[in-house]
Write a protein that binds this DNA or RNA. Structure first.
Lengths: 351, 351
DNA sequence: CTAATTTATCGAAACGTTTCGATAATATTG
DNA sequence: CAATATTATCGAAACGTTTCGATAAATTAG
């Protein structure tokens, strides 16, 4: 069925009403009699009418778009954590009749950094920022009075909502599982420790061990890598195995990439995973199922995070709910092959 | 620096010229004196002016957007082959000052299937379709007189360009490598054989073997899976190992997912990869580096495919080159750990 | 019954650009 | 020198909707 590019004028003519009346019907607005509404609806169908996005946008000062911003390094990262989140936003946005425009910005900010064009052109009605980002980008959005939702990042700033991972719960579940499986020498490796998620995973690791009366041993910890890439997991695991006295029987990594790197180090150094050392990751990216052994990991519902962010943003755009919100998405421990039960009885420290 | 939402009117006033003259300067069009051009440019900078996308769109009957369509199953597939292509389009589109709008459609087509909203709203200037798609979606785009580029798919239809994988070259390189490594019993597993890429990979497999004087054995082939998912690789490899007389020393899979499935079957059945059977995949998705052993595979430059598609489409949109083009992207064999050299001397069949 | 309120329909301005034709000045060609 | 072509600048219509206020009819309340 060919689209004949009809306009609202032709619909009005065919239905015998004014353009204004047609607009009321198209937008499902009141003060149109049932009889007229039916006539207009029929004309719309017969003429296969669909309003143009541009014209609606100009007249109503809206764009129908949501901006999605992330940093360049997150954009190109091998493990598609943020692309899953993006796909989640796209699917949910569609339900609300929004398009999602994707862009990247530099991780740091200099004077002449290019501002996303969709901000300059006023081509988005709200913005989602995924991951850690320089504060000046947040200011750039807020200065334009655009609704903003952050994903996996938070700032103490008025009017910014966040969709966050319940990192503490995830790490708690991981430590809990390990201690219930008989592990006491549990290490932690991480990178980019200033990232709020990594920081809170590390805090939760120490806190949960303390709650269980297990000593937090510094020689089982390595968290000074610049980022959470695979190769930094390799290096961090290497350091832990080198400096630790009594070796860990389990290592919790700040994310799956570092867990994979840790497994690579361990295997290449003659340790067997999980026979000698269990490894747990965080995120549950696709690779977790492909590495050998398959990675036990804390599953983060990435597409759901994207969907929730869209819901929050659309509410802000439509001014349904102006409350600043922090939404924590629950996590689950997915048991695969990289963890081993040492003993079925939880070890209770003797003192 | 706060954006004060200035309009072209204010720029005109400040520069002491007309709106039309400002528009000529903004769009870098001729018939403006150098003196006036400088005055206007200064005013634009001082007022931090940026034209609205909506207004420009309405006036020029353009959207500034490119539509990106793929099927729902491709959208949600675990291995992010098409998301890599999408990311490639986004990066390239940005250079040409286009936004990319992503959507999915059903793999098949029924009467009341929803047409992508960006087509209905005339909100794209051209469309990229990635992967195999029902012909009616192609018609839906062409009926709207929109420029169209297909990725990893082709149809014998007027005016449709394609960015394709040089499947034959990839398979040729894989077979060549294997035969040069001493393999003669080389199997092939595939699914969704009607997909042009898969079909041409299979054809190339047979053809290259024949060129080398190696018999194409039907008992080393399994290609009747419905799609190229991991579990179908498992099943196809199982079938090949069950029905074949002299067992294969190598299996070429139609894609990485099936290669991974094949490795899983082989390992779970007591075979060692590559000691007993070498495995080669196609695509080089992220998982190829994570499976054990790491997968030898034909690398497809996915982001480049996306970038090329955007370039072709932008040319079509701007009517720079209306020629229908097929662009084949080169591929490379990436040697990892899943292939073994049987003998360093290429086996030349004795007859 | 009358006044007040709600419902129904419409005309036209507005949204912010692009672009075409009008007008005039300048440059080139025969 | 005159005719023709090019360059420069501008006014206003157009693009296709939304939406506000005008006008009138219908309904409700006192």
């Amino acid at each position: 069925m060919k689209n004949k590019k009809t306009t609202i004028k032709e619909v009005a003519k065919k239905a015998g009403v004014s353009i204004s009346t047609v607009s009321l019907v198209v937008n499902n607005l009141p003060y149109v009699s049932a009889e007229v509404r039916e006539k207009v609806t029929n004309a719309i169908k017969e003429l296969n009418f669909y309003p143009r996005r541009n014209a609606r946008g100009l007249a109503s000062k809206t764009s129908g778009n949501i901006g999605f911003i992330l940093t360049e390094n997150h954009f190109s990262q091998a493990e598609p954590f943020y692309t899953k989140i993006f796909l989640g936003t796209e699917f949910e946005a569609r339900k609300h009749r929004y398009y999602v425009l994707l862009t990247t910005v530099a991780p740091t900010r200099t004077e002449n950094e290019e501002i996303p064009r969709f901000l300059l052109e006023e081509n988005v009605d709200g913005v989602i920022i995924a991951g850690k980002i320089h504060q000046s980008w947040i200011e750039e959005v807020q200065n334009r009075n655009l609704p903003l939702v952050l994903i996996d990042f938070e700032v103490s700033r008025q009017g910014v909502s966040s969709v966050l991972i319940d990192n503490a719960e995830g790490i708690h579940k991981a430590v809990d599982y390990l201690t219930k499986s008989g592990h006491r020498e549990i290490g932690f490796i991480g990178g980019d420790i200033k990232h709020p998620s990594i920081k809170s995973r590390f805090t939760a690791y120490k806190q949960t061990l303390s709650e269980k009366g297990i000593e937090v041993r510094q020689d089982l910890i390595s968290i000074d890598q610049t980022d959470t890439a695979i190769e930094n997991g390799f290096v961090a695991a290497k350091k832990v195995m080198e400096i630790s006295g009594k070796k860990p029987t389990a290592i919790i990594a700040a994310n799956d990439a570092m867990a994979i790197g840790a497994i690579r180090f361990l295997k290449s150094s003659g340790y067997m995973v999980p026979k000698d050392v269990s490894v747990i990751g965080f995120d549950n990216v696709d690779a977790a199922e492909h590495v050998s052994p398959k990675l036990t990991t804390v599953h983060v519902p990435k597409e759901e995070m994207g969907a929730i962010a869209v819901k929050r943003l659309v509410e802000k755009i439509q001014k349904i709910d102006n409350v600043t919100m922090k939404t924590f998405v629950g996590v689950d421990l997915v048991l695969r092959d990289s963890t081993k039960v040492l003993s079925s009885k939880e070890v209770i420290p003797v003192k």
